[in-house]
Amino acid sequence: MRRTLRDRIQQFLAFASLIVIFGFFSIVSPNFFNYGNVTNILFSTVVIGLLALGTTFVIITGGIDLSIGTGMALCAVISGVLIVDLGVPLPLGVLGAILFGGLIGLVNGMNVAILGLPPFIATLAMMLVAQGLALVVSNSTPIYFDQTPAYIDLSIGSLIPGTDFPNAVLILALAAVVAGVLLNRTVLGRYTYSIGSNEEATALSGIDVRRWKIIIYTLAGLFTGLAGVMISARLGSAQPATGMGYELQAIAAVVIGGTSLSGGKGSIVGTVIGALIISVLNNGLQIMSIPQEWQNVILGAVILLAVYADMARKRAR
């Protein structure tokens, strides 16, 4: 909420790291910096990016949402059931899947805000429930969207005439703008920061913290639903067994972007940069044919250092 110089610098540094990493790969590999590959990088950011956007709100409140990965798989399955099995018109099916994500978030929010469960436990339980339900609802088999190519085009089609620039990237950009406006320009965003900075003080000032927490988790769920639509569109299929581990990558993106896990601080721009840093690293290391074991070591080191930077900032206050 308060944009101090310090926050600006943190964000600038994250952005500068992104540029440095990007520049490095451009120099060392002739196959890195070209239209096709940069498009690949943006495209591979979409799913993690959407999950990270939603979960940024939750993390700023000082909470965590572990259910977004498998929740995404469940929403993908719901989308498949609606569109393929039940023949619901495409826009309604997509809307249904997104709203179902909201429902998952609503349950998370109620468990956290009303029952008072720790967010880690409440969403850990939901992670398992969603993983199981995705398998149950789909009968453990992928649901294919072969008969609805328009659905697949939501991800890999292109609205920009004369190019193959994927729609998924445009949707991520739009979602980031919406998230940014919500966080910076609305009362929802103000309360998100306020709850994360000092929950008690927020409650004492007459704000219904419970209600706003439920709304924030529900919002994260809506992003989860959209991520479910986008991953199933990209894969041309709803894959019930996928999703586990995506929550951690999304959380990593948020943290690399400078959002504090102890709440009260963070930004959408940071999260977008964090997600981009992860996908640029993944892409660049793969393009360079770095042995895969080392790719994970490097990613881990980056996360450690990003969190260290966050802690150093906090000690400085």
Binding site: F24, V28, I290, A301, L305, A306
Partner: peptide
């Protein structure tokens, strides 16, 4: 952060 990533990348390379 950037330095470690790049060094490791270079070594791996």
């Amino acid at each position: 952060t950037a330095a470690v990533a790049l060094t490791l990348a270079a070594c791996g390379g």
